[in-house]
Nucleic acid binder design. Structure first.
Lengths: 345, 345
DNA sequence: CAGCGTAATGTATGCGCATACATTTTTGAT
DNA sequence: ATCAAAAATGTATGCGCATACATTACGCTG
């Protein structure tokens, strides 16, 4: 594929002519480049005295190692690529925060990109990322194009897929069973005595799978159809309000429970219900998904499906580190989920 | 500084022995490495026929260019570094989404890290990022250590500071005047007839500056002290509730207006007021900050201070691109702000 | 058809570092 | 004091690509 980007081409490209290298530092410290390199990556192999002189030379020159050259020579970039659907969705970014922090402690940096729920742009991004020769790569979800799978396998690096599980991961996956989660919520609400239910779902493949599992199971249990309001784009309070309004205005759903694909839309649904005079959960119960930080702080406190995101972050990071270190690793990690009963359902 | 990270050291380091290079592609297409390189970056300088053969060879081999080697040879990484305080705060991530997208269209990738509101870790991160030889770097805020400034200047690349303005930027800054925003809110609330006010502020340097400007101005206008509830960490609905509760329980603030450092804490404050039976804005008015996507969707709709984040993203990206292309650029961009009057104040 | 400009490709080189291997210096045990 | 092992440092080399420069193959003008 020819490179069709416009390349920047200005005065700043001429910089670097004067940048300090290990050779410069070495000259100042009276040693060669190799010793400087060693002083930085294997300080125990360099005498106390030279170490000090090199350190002084580094301070004096303001030397900043060139990780690009280092990566080329060593074939290790200390970079881990990560692709997430959205940069603004806390569900993904809070995971990333944990993941990055954990990896940083082991000397790795994370190169993060947003794929935007779009398969085509994911393919392009995977190629771009692989060109940076990351030491590992993390993807969201388990559905990737054949081309992507091929490139990933060809890269010969650990690949972690998160937020979902499958028996056939590219390499490693860490997540939970969305189908089971949908079913579980259906059973929970049925057990609570609800005869009717509806769903509010965002345009997210995993959310849609939870929704369909929920609808299928709830219909089986209660013999009543489950209307769905698709919020169209990504979940938000506004989208949740709109969807709730739509359900009330355009379906015969008037009492029962609503299963939302996100805590955000659940929160929006509750706000809409309140402004219309419905009581939650007495008139209509609401279940969210994700257990976001605010779930316990709204009124009524939100009943929701919780997945241990901290553990997700740790497991994903550890899997990467284990693989990189050649330690044995499980290829499928099922985090499970938990229905957190609060007051809204 | 010696590298004290544990280095991963496992089986995966041996990979790459078999990775396809331009030389391999060239051999298959009957040309040399140079022609392959040209085919990729200057396709117009290669004949139609060879171009096709090279393309075929690329497809056949699954060649993925090595951007690391490219960067070393060309001294351009096509990377732009970005440091933001928090990955989970939509205020920063929504900016990043715009910024990254814009730069991606011009062939640049963004290397994003979270600094965590902590100056020491910012210094370390700046060094790490500079070692990757980014073509430009973006920082949040205008307060950086001397060491950081020195390193940044030595890097000889465009530096953009966002979310704040100063007469003395390292290179370029894009933001607005937080002091002026605080004053403006004070004047707005005074004009609305409020004689009393309080503030709810998170532990964020810029938020604290808005708060102190607000308090100073409001006190000057109304001769009444402005109690503050610091939420301690980062803003959230929960922190807002707690702070509001604290104000009511532990100060003599009972009526008037509350200026919150974030829409999130404002939302929390409103929830707390509602559960305690206060009417918003009749009993207590609430002003937020940031105009997050939900601000208009809660009840009552939130009056807040809006900054054009989209424009911030575009301006920051364009400034970088202009600098890189050697075009003339303004060094200080004041975005201004706007008080968005809705129902909560 | 000489002569020259242009298009198309190739050759040579080095970016800054890590690493294998070679050499020198130091240490300690006898 | 002697020698082998260990510690400390150096030499040589190449990672994969971009770029300056050299070469070759073709037109085209007069």
């Amino acid at each position: 594929m020819p490179n069709d980007h416009k390349m920047a081409d200005g005065i700043f490209n001429k910089r670097d002519t004067s940048r300090v290298t290990m050779t410069d530092v070495g000259r100042l410290a009276g040693v060669t480049q190799v010793t400087v390199s060693r002083a930085l990556s294997h300080p125990d192999k360099v005498s106390k005295d030279t170490l000090r002189r090199i350190q002084d030379a580094i301070d004096a020159t303001g030397f900043v190692p060139n990780a690009v050259a280092g990566a080329l020579a060593s074939k290790r970039s200390n970079l881990v690529s990560a692709l997430i659907p959205s940069l603004t969705n806390v569900v993904y970014t809070s995971f990333m925060a944990t993941f990055s922090q954990h990896l940083r402690q082991h000397g790795y940096q994370v190169l993060l990109s947003e794929t935007g729920f779009d398969a085509a742009s994911e393919d392009a991004l995977i190629a771009t990322h692989l060109s940076r020769r990351p030491d590992a790569i993390l993807l969201t979800g388990i559905h990737h194009s054949d081309k992507a799978r091929k490139q990933l396998q060809g890269a010969g690096i650990p690949v972690v897929e998160i937020w979902d599980i499958t028996d056939d991961p590219i390499d490693i996956c860490v997540g939970f069973n969305h189908h089971a989660a949908g079913r579980a919520v259906a059973e929970y609400l049925k057990a609570k005595g609800h005869a009717f239910a509806a769903t509010i779902t965002a345009d997210d493949e995993r959310a849609l799978r939870r929704q369909s599992a929920f609808a299928e199971r709830f219909t089986a249990l209660s013999q009543s159809a489950v209307p769905d309001a698709n919020t169209g784009g990504t979940a938000s309070i506004g989208a949740g309000r709109e969807a709730m309004a739509h359900l009330i205005d355009h379906s015969d759903f008037r009492k029962g429970a609503v299963f939302c694909s996100s805590d955000l839309s659940a929160h929006g649904a509750i706000i809409e219900l309140h402004t219309r005079g419905y009581k939650v959960p007495q008139d209509i119960a609401v279940v969210g998904f994700g257990d976001q930080d605010f779930a316990g702080d709204i009124d009524p406190a939100l009943t929701t499906v919780a997945v241990d995101r901290l553990q997700l972050g740790h497991l994903a990071a550890n899997s990467v580190l284990d693989k990189l270190a050649g330690r044995p690793t499980k290829s499928v990690h099922d985090l499970g989920f938990k229905i957190l009963t609060r007051l809204s359902a």
